[in-house]
């Protein structure tokens, strides 16, 4: 069963195409991450799926309801925490939650009760009676997320929930996301941090310039970029140049990059050939005081997938 099924979603602003044909399937109960640099089209895609803007082309259904034709049914099942806090700064945290709860149809008494339950579980009970404009970034985020959970949604959109948060606040948001997933809510979040996608998501889609450029689990994404990276520490610059020219024509090597001073990173097509390469280097009289074989780092994956082409 799918929470989201989208086909060829497209959104243009004037001549500029912000989202350029995105296909998407999100399994019910999963955590799905959109990973992409600034301006990739993450927010635009989320806003289309949350019925806030209309796609110019393409179609989507959420829980089997058509995004456009049955937007009311869609809205009843989803909740959105946008990239920028959508709470009323002049009101207190408690008043904000009561306001939204009442607008969802709770009676005044029930709204108060739900607000205090949420404030307490989000660690905001001490600040409940303070105006939101006095809140820190992390507190604001939590309040904003709490406001999206007054009625537990079947699908929650979180647009960059941890951008600008310190490590503690970030891990608090992660806790909320995980607890929510355990309670059965499907989550679609966007992030610029690979680590976050890796930690939280069952499935990652890398988005760049309005298109999905890669998709899969974190492990799949890593292995899609060559299965191993051999890092060589060379004794001096002459050796480094020598090694570089020696390996340049090798068919088993995907890419050689200079890393730190005196260090080469060699992306291999198969990890097995690493030993063979070391032998070759030794035979050519090049000393390799240190080496290591590892997976490409997530940053490398990210940069490789989203680099200017």
């Amino acid at each position: 069963m799918y929470a989201i099924k989208a086909k060829k979603l497209k959104k243009t602003y004037g001549d500029f195409t912000a989202v350029n044909g995105i296909d998407l399937t999100v399994k019910k109960g999963s955590i799905f991450a959109f990973l992409g640099p600034n301006g990739a089209g993450k927010t635009t895609t989320i806003r289309m799926l949350a019925t806030l803007i209309k796609p110019d082309q393409g179609e989507a259904s959420l829980f089997g309801y058509d995004l456009i034709k049955q937007s009311k049914a869609v809205r009843q099942r989803i909740s959105l925490t946008g990239q920028y806090a959508s709470i009323d700064e002049a009101l207190t945290g408690q008043e904000n939650l009561i306001l939204i709860a009442r607008l969802l149809g709770f009676s005044v008494g029930k709204a108060k009760q739900r607000a205090s339950e949420l404030l307490e579980s989000f660690g905001l009970d001490d600040a409940a009676k303070r105006q939101v404009k006095t809140y820190s970034g992390g507190m604001r985020r939590r309040l904003d997320i709490a406001a999206s959970l007054i009625v537990t949604p079947e699908l929650l959109f979180l647009d960059e929930p941890t951008t600008g948060l310190d490590p503690r606040s970030r891990s608090q948001v992660w806790q909320v996301v995980q607890a929510l997933a355990e309670a059965g809510t499907t989550i679609l979040l966007t992030t610029q941090y690979l680590e976050e996608a890796d930690q939280l998501a069952d499935h990652i889609a890398v988005i760049n310039k309005g298109r999905i450029v890669a998709e899969g689990t974190a492990a799949q994404l890593k292995s899609s970029l060559g299965s191993g990276v051999l890092t060589l520490q060379l004794a001096n610059q002459a050796d480094l140049m020598h090694a570089r020219s020696l390996l340049a024509g090798n068919q088993d090597i995907e890419k050689i990059t200079d890393a730190k001073e005196g260090e080469l990173r060699i992306k291999l097509k198969q990890p097995q050939i690493a030993t063979q390469l070391l032998v070759e280097l030794g035979q050519a009289g090049i000393k390799v005081p240190e080496f290591s074989l590892g997976q490409p780092s997530l940053d490398e994956v990210f940069l490789a997938l989203t680099e200017e082409r």
Binding site: E117, L118, S121, V151, Q175, A179, A183
Partner: peptide, 25 residues
Amino acid sequence: SKINTNQLRAVLTKQERPEPPNPLY
């Protein structure tokens, strides 16, 4: 301030969904 995970789970599993409010409310 800390997230109260156990309580959070309890709060999130409550599946209360009231009827939409009438315009006057």
